[in-house]
Design a protein around this nucleic acid. Sequence first.
DNA 1: AATCGAGTGTGACATACATCACAATTATAA
DNA 2: TTATAATTGTGATGTATGTCACACTCGATT
Lengths: 187, 187
Amino acid sequence: MKEKLKEHIENLIPLTDEEFSFILSHVSFEKYKKNDFIIQEGENVKNCYLVVNGLLKLVYDDKNGKQHIVSFAMEDWWESDFSAYFSQTKAKMSLQCIEDTTVYSLSFKNYQKLSAELPKMKQFFLEKSNSGHSASQNRILSFLTSNAKERYEQLLKQYPLLFQRVPKTLLASYLGVSRETLSRLSS
Amino acid sequence: MKEKLKEHIENLIPLTDEEFSFILSHVSFEKYKKNDFIIQEGENVKNCYLVVNGLLKLVYDDKNGKQHIVSFAMEDWWESDFSAYFSQTKAKMSLQCIEDTTVYSLSFKNYQKLSAELPKMKQFFLEKSNSGHSASQNRILSFLTSNAKERYEQLLKQYPLLFQRVPKTLLASYLGVSRETLSRLSS
DNA sequence: AATCGAGTGTGACATACATCACAATTATAA
DNA sequence: TTATAATTGTGATGTATGTCACACTCGATT
């Protein structure tokens, strides 16, 4: 398990063994079951999470009780309600398991500590944040330029695995269309 | 002018005079006229920009020749085709002046240099990137949860100034609706 | 002053998508 | 296994929004 975290970071930045054990002492390994909530709307968001195995959804429940999926988090992704995490306020969204899931959890305090004491980690977080930002911009772009069918095809192309792992209802909720419309698109 | 840059950074992180002049020697001050392109689609993206005065639009031109506004950049905002900037590839979007605009320009090389040699700047960029990421997620959320009228009202509430500074056609293009629909919404 | 073009409003109509209802199938649990 | 819930497909219909066409205003240019 440790190895997976090491690989994940070294994918961007090489680490000495000392550096890695320092990092390891600042995160905790956690297991969740399908349908468990890792973050619940309204709670203080103390942690962000690296998915080791499994699959998460970051969802927003609107005033009509409808669920909207802001993001899926697959293996090797960091996820949280980052807006609440960085400002240390209450979650507007929930983070819930679609499958049994294992994660590394990083508290905000330790995030700050790692950033401050290990320049390499600050660099790591910076690069992660930049790529997260780019990914979000691409998603915005797809809402601006594409209709439901095109967005569906883009999603399939980008994450063919997702298609087999999550019910269509959730895909629809991610794409911003009703499940009925999505069903008609695929046929 | 220098003062505005100093204020902007010190809004997040205090600087000594030496640190600030080091930073200043790594950016360049530039002036553009209304309708000028700062970045053109297809070019290599060498710089990102801090808007000192004026107003920019980040636009994507789709295959049908239709323009989509991914973002407006007002005073005190950093903007670029960040995806292309960070990967040092060609721009998928253009950055164009809606008004006469002055900016500080930061090359990718100097971005890396500042990040590497001034920990405070790495911290600064990290915090900027995090808040940019949050902002993008909020925009995604508004596409998922709101119809055109609601998105319009949210925009007005968040940036009342914008409303007076840019033609409705551009607001429509930002909101992802036709100008006719937007016109009918406001009445 | 006359002309031009950008920005805007509005009617008529077309289309994409949502909603509601119901049936069929497949997974899950007792 | 049987029962129960979750998932999916599909028809009928309503609504939001897009598209096309045209007119009007207003500021800029000559």
